[in-house]
Design a protein around this nucleic acid. Sequence first.
DNA 1: ACCTGAACACCGTTCAAGT
DNA 2: ACCTGAACACCGTTCAAGT
Lengths: 177, 177
Amino acid sequence: MVRSDARENRERILVVAREVFAEPGEASLNQIAQRAGVGAGTLYRHFPTREDLVLAVYQDEVERLVGAAPELLAANAPIDGLRLWTTDLVAAMRQKHGLGEALGQSAHQAAADRSYGPVMAVITAFFEAGKADGSIRVDAHPADFLMLTGALWRAIGHADADSGRMLELILDGLRTR
Amino acid sequence: MVRSDARENRERILVVAREVFAEPGEASLNQIAQRAGVGAGTLYRHFPTREDLVLAVYQDEVERLVGAAPELLAANAPIDGLRLWTTDLVAAMRQKHGLGEALGQSAHQAAADRSYGPVMAVITAFFEAGKADGSIRVDAHPADFLMLTGALWRAIGHADADSGRMLELILDGLRTR
DNA sequence: ACCTGAACACCGTTCAAGT
DNA sequence: ACCTGAACACCGTTCAAGT
């Protein structure tokens, strides 16, 4: 039985952690605990290690994005919905850049692996809608789109590349002509 | 004018740091200073930040490998020399895995960029020797070899891939037939 | 059953005092 | 001109005492 205060504390820590990780500079776990209004031991109880906390925030973010997809799909033309969703994804990954730096390469990989399925499911849903209404080429592959998108957010910090324009380029490749 | 004790201290710190980074687990800068027999302030004077130290060790390693190449080239058939050199490179990169985890993704990229030129020069030298004596295909590209080798050491920690066998496969692709 | 927050060992960093 | 090492503020982590 999980006590309600425990659940609330966990949620509050997660919210603060997401804010803090999005900010520039590092923050200590003690600071996060303080900002969340909980004792240091409470944070440690919920997230034994910094990595656990980072992973939980990451996971939360992916779930939020995946959960928002059906609404975008219902309210927009497939390609437009996909653009909106991918823009959100890239924005989230920009934050995760801050997260990813804190994560070891292996933990990072594990996190990416875990989110692969749900993310692919979302992309596939947009693709199928687009293929059904004739706006997306029938021979377009969701996996290719994900790979290109991955290259896109990997390029974010590096170059002065305009991610919006790059995304447009990728989306153009999907269109029927 | 650099005093000789300063140079010796720097060298000693670098040697200890290389050892320490190769060991499992983390080590504090204070511990490294102590093991190197210098005061904490001395380490800090030479390497203002942890990243500076990691980068210096990395740089040192690449220089050592590049410096050892001519000898290998002189004493072996081109393909054999290349195998020996690449094996050393992969072994060094395996250690660098420990280094790389400590480095931010951007600093890591910068370090890789800086070593690209010298490493390519070495590979090119082996290739030219091999093309001259007819053991390596004239249409083989050093850049391709480096890319495949990169994929090789990226796979090290991940899978149970036998890097020796993978290297042999790559080398076979270079041979004239 | 869970939380608080003082306490602990240790971290990176600084700087007065030495040579 | 450079080094030492005590000192400082702060870190992650623990745990007795509370509710």
